[in-house]
Design a protein around this nucleic acid. Structure first.
Lengths: 123, 123
DNA sequence: GCTTGACTTAGAGCGCGCTCAAACGTGCAG
DNA sequence: CTGCACGTTTGAGCGCGCTCTAAGTCAAGC
């Protein structure tokens, strides 16, 4: 699988894929021996999609890097990874709750009609 | 209410509050006539919290500015505002769904244990 | 052999959302 | 009068996450 194909299938630009690799998010990328072009496996598709999900959920790149390095270091790092995932899951839960609360506010606003915001100094 | 008080109660720094005002997100801020200090009303607390919610939900500042300008232009702009809110609500819904899907993936990963990512070139 | 096109690299540039620095003004307590 | 806390302004700086440019390499088709 070439970088262009991975870009197409994941929706992440080739530029960004190279950036992710430089940033330490995608270890173990093999190369075509003659051309030097990157060769991706099917597993990379899932990995990139997982990275995108982490980003969507607000995880900063440096934390994703820490996670990727643990993965690269092997199975012995699983306890640390599990702890990170749990912490992240809690973060995601909190974000979902905030968004749901916000959604309710929006819904009320949409239905309520005009002019709730009163910004004059009254007190 | 002073800017420091508003900062404390909303959790948004005074620096950022001034930035928001410059950015056109907070119209109608009155001033103490002698000192020139900003005077905020109770309504500003709600407005700032609403702005923070919009940001949390991923709305870019320029769109928040567009909304704020409609508010400043008065009640006649309600149809446009309502349309913006509806579009934003749809955006929030999509984001919630993405996060929930991601959350399920995380849950599975946490339970499943080690070593799902296989990045070797096999195909 | 020449062109075309997909890839490579190092490194610069950019938009966003703050965040802070510098210099100055106001008002009150000691 | 002095000092201090708290506010003001303009404008610069910063971290993040890409995004793009320039110059070069390689493989295939005419």
């Amino acid at each position: 699988m070439t970088i262009a194909e991975l870009a197409t299938v994941t929706g992440v630009s080739a530029h960004t894929l190279r950036y992710y690799e430089r940033a330490g998010l995608v270890p173990l990328v093999e190369r075509d021996p003659s051309s030097g072009h990157r060769r991706y496996s099917r597993g990379h598709v899932g990995w990139i999609e997982f990275l995108r999900n982490l980003r969507t959920a607000g995880m900063p790149v440096r934390e994703m890097r820490a996670y990727a390095r643990l993965v690269a270091r092997g199975d012995g790092t699983w306890p640390q990874r599990q702890a990170m995932l749990k912490a992240h899951r809690a973060h995601v839960d909190a974000m979902i709750r905030r968004l749901q609360a916000h959604r309710r506010v929006l819904d009320r606003k949409v239905r309520a009609g005009c002019a709730p915001p009163r910004l004059e100094v009254a007190d």
